[in-house]
C-alpha cells in the first residue's frame, strides 16, 4: 500500500516529484515540462496568473487529468499518471476552486463521505444495520465530530450545504478533506472570495492542520500576502511553464516572477 510508504517517508524528504510534466487538450497546452518536488510536511504553494495551469497541475497530481508526457514520482515510485481512486486511497485529499460539495447532503453527511474509504462493512451488513455496522458508524462519526469541532461547524451540522454561505461552504469542503485524515492535502484557492477575517480563519486552519496533523499541504492561492506568510516553498507557473521556485523571500526577488505579475517594462 502506498499509504504506508508515504507514512514511512521521513519529514523533509520528497514525497511527490513532478518530472517534466506536460499536459495538452487538443492543441491547447496547459502545462509544458513542469518539474518540482514537494517535501513531506511542508506547506507548498503554486502561484501564477490566471490560466497559468495551476489547477491543471493539481488535477494531474490527483489523477483527474492524465499528463501527455512526463512522470510523477509518488512515494518513491515513478508513474505515468495517477488515478483518482488510487490517489484518494494513498492519502491525497483536495478541495476545489469552484466548491465541489455534495449539495443535497448535510454538513455532517458531507464530512462522513470523507470517511467512506475507511469504512469496511459490506452492503448486506449495512442493510441489516446491527452491531458491527453501528459500531463502525459511531467510530467514524466520532472522528468527524473532531473535525467539526476543529473547524467550528457545530451549528450547521444538519444544514444542507447547498444553502450555506460561500465562506462556510469552503470550510465544509476543507472539513471533508480533513475527515479523510490525508497525508497530502491539495487546496485549490481555499481563500478566494473571502474577506480578511475569513482568510485569517482559513490560514489558521491550514497551518494547524499542517502543524498538528503533520499534513503536507499543496496550495494554490492568489493572495500574495497569505502565500508569503504561510508557505515554506513556492513554485511559480506562467502560461503552463515554471518560471520560478524557492522560498518566499527568493520568489519576491525573482525577476521573471515580477515580470510575469507586473508585466515587463519596455
Amino acid at each position: 500500500m502506498s499509504l504506508d510508504k508515504i507514512q514511512s517517508i521521513p519529514y523533509g524528504k520528497e514525497v511527490i516529484k513532478i518530472k517534466n510534466i506536460s499536459l495538452a487538450f487538443g492543441g491547447v497546452k496547459a502545462l509544458t515540462n513542469v518539474s518540482f518536488d514537494v517535501k513531506k510536511g511542508e506547506v507548498f504553494a503554486i502561484i501564477g496568473p490566471n490560466g497559468a495551469g495551476k489547477s491543471s497541475m493539481l488535477n494531474v497530481i490527483n489523477g483527474f487529468y492524465k499528463p501527455t508526457s512526463g512522470q510523477i514520482n509518488f512515494a518513491g515510485e515513478d508513474r505515468k499518471e495517477m488515478m483518482p481512486e488510487f490517489a484518494a486511497k494513498s492519502g491525497i485529499a483536495r478541495t476545489f476552486q469552484n466548491i465541489a460539495l455534495f449539495k443535497g447532503m448535510s454538513t455532517l453527511d458531507n464530512l462522513m463521505t470523507g470517511r467512506l474509504l475507511k469504512q469496511k462493512q459490506n452492503f448486506l451488513m449495512q442493510a441489516l444495520y446491527f452491531g458491527p455496522v453501528q459500531k463502525e458508524e459511531a467510530y467514524h462519526r466520532d472522528k468527524v465530530e473532531r473535525v467539526i469541532d476543529f473547524l467550528d461547524l457545530q451549528a450547521i451540522r444538519r444544514t444542507p450545504v447547498g444553502s450555506l454561505p460561500y465562506g462556510l461552504q469552503k470550510r465544509v469542503e476543507l472539513g471533508r478533506a480533513l475527515a479523510m485524515e490525508p497525508e497530502i492535502l491539495l487546496l485549490d484557492e481555499p481563500m478566494a472570495g473571502m474577506n480578511v477575517e475569513e482568510k485569517q480563519d482559513m490560514s489558521r486552519f491550514v497551518l494547524t492542520a499542517n502543524d498538528e496533523f503533520k499534513t503536507t499541504i499543496v496550495l494554490i492561492e492568489h493572495d500574495m500576502s497569505v502565500v508569503m506568510d504561510i508557505s515554506n516553498r513556492i513554485v511559480v507557473l506562467d502560461y503552463g511553464k515554471k518560471i520560478g521556485e524557492g522560498k518566499p523571500s527568493e520568489i519576491l526577488k525573482n525577476k521573471a516572477v515580477i515580470d510575469a505579475y507586473l508585466g515587463v517594462a519596455d
Partner: peptide, 29 residues
C-alpha cells in the same frame, strides 16, 4: 433494509455520486 443502506456507507456513496460525481471520485468513491 433500504433505509439502513441509505443512512450508512453505501447510501452516502450513492448521494455523493448523485450530487457531484467528479468530487466523489476524488474522495475515493
Amino acid at each position: 433494509a433500504a433505509k439502513n443502506m441509505i443512512r450508512s456507507k453505501i447510501g452516502r456513496s450513492w448521494m455523493a455520486i448523485r450530487d457531484m460525481d467528479i468530487a466523489a471520485e476524488i474522495i475515493g468513491v
